[in-house]
């Protein structure tokens, strides 16, 4: 009973490990999977195998952090998407619904168009760019605002949260639009790049931050699998099953704001992953969140790992924005699955 989805998750996990080895090897300097392992072992003070110094530098300071980052960000976006769809009992929900992207986009525009020209361009704050700090703050603040608007009588009204989310999104969108209008050509270009997302220039420091954020949100969300399932019956029914729905809401909002906020801060907006990966996984492993949540995380990591590999190799040395790739690859796959499912249901 219920054995099959576990096998799918194991398969996804092995694909992810394989992808990590393969994707780090792909690029202008190619590195075989075994060489990748040898270089990593050397860093852990265990010498074996042959590789060049150039390979070592490329892998350790450029490629490995970047590929790890793509997996971490993809996992965070996808599991948070699955959590949002569970929380709002709506298949169209994704992290942007609680204002994360709108808040982040607004503060990014604010920094790029108004603040950066006034300060020195290379200003850092605790080692992070002003843009990163500001977008994270913007993402978290707008989430907190929407959450606060939806509170009534010590309860959170999910419908109000949805509607508050829509209006805050519209408001932030208008402000972002105004700033875009004021921007000059160079600012417009960096704004566009930010909006489409990029993993270029990922540092180890960013990887460490992202792995803490992703790790925490995985830890929080995976433990809530029963609550998500029960919520599918309805809020009242979930409460009758002993689920504390209010604490579920708080944990989900916290985990999502943290993980997606950090990923937006480092990589800009990467759309599509949070919406589509949970859908694809639901068609494959079913709605049971015990399997759906880990499958979404693994699938998101897998998708973003290869999307980023494509983004940096397809038109090398130029880079295609990763948001373009995720939509370009994800949408047809999604449509294909949708039609396949419809045919299966018609039979």
């Amino acid at each position: 009973m219920l054995g099959k989805p576990n096998n799918i998750n194991l398969l996804l996990l092995s694909c992810l490990i394989f992808s990590l080895l393969a994707a780090t090897g792909i690029g202008a300097v190619s590195i075989a999977p075994l060489e990748v392992l040898a270089i990593v072992s050397k860093k852990l003070a265990w010498h074996w195998g042959n590789f060049t110094a150039q390979q070592e530098v490329v892998l350790w300071s450029i490629r490995l952090p970047r590929v790890l980052m793509s997996i971490l960000v993809g996992a965070a976006l996808a599991i948070c998407g699955a959590a949002m769809q569970g929380l709002f009992r709506n298949a169209l929900a994704d992290p942007s619904i609680i204002g994360i992207s709108a808040g982040a986009a607004f503060s990014a525009a604010l920094v790029i168009v108004l603040i950066a020209p006034m300060l020195s361009a290379s200003m850092l704050w605790a080692g992070f760019s002003l843009l990163s700090v500001a977008t994270f703050t913007g993402a978290v603040l707008s989430t907190v605002l929407i959450f606060a608007l939806a509170r009534e009588k010590r309860k959170t009204n999910v419908v109000t949260m949805l509607l508050a989310g829509i209006s805050i999104n519209a408001l932030a969108g208008a402000a972002t639009g105004l700033l875009t209008y004021l921007a000059d050509d160079a600012q417009l270009r960096s704004l566009t790049f930010w909006t489409l997302g990029s993993l270029g220039g990922t540092t180890w420091k960013a990887v460490i931050f992202m792995s803490v954020a992703t790790g925490l949100s995985l830890l929080i969300l995976l433990r809530l699998h029963k609550s998500f399932n029960a919520l599918a019956l309805g809020e009242a029914e979930a409460i009758h099953l002993g689920v504390s729905v209010e604490s579920l809401k708080r944990w989900v909002i916290f985990a999502t704001a943290l993980a997606v906020g950090v990923s937006v801060a480092f990589c800009g907006m990467i759309g599509f992953v949070g919406l589509v990966v949970p859908h694809i996984m639901r068609l494959w492993v079913g709605a049971e969140h015990r399997y759906l949540l880990p499958a979404s995380a693994l699938g998101g990591g897998l998708l973003l790992c290869w999307a980023d590999t494509l983004s940096r190799t397809w038109a090398a040395p130029a880079e295609i924005p990763i948001g373009v790739i995720t939509a370009l690859v994800g949408a047809p796959v999604f449509l294909f699955l949708l039609f396949k499912q419809r045919r299966a249901m018609a039979m």
């Binding site: 298949a91 599918a232 709605a287």
Partner: peptide
């Protein structure tokens, strides 16, 4: 009792 997702 509505079910928002299709469980077994």
């Amino acid at each position: 009792v509505g079910l928002s997702q299709d469980f077994k």
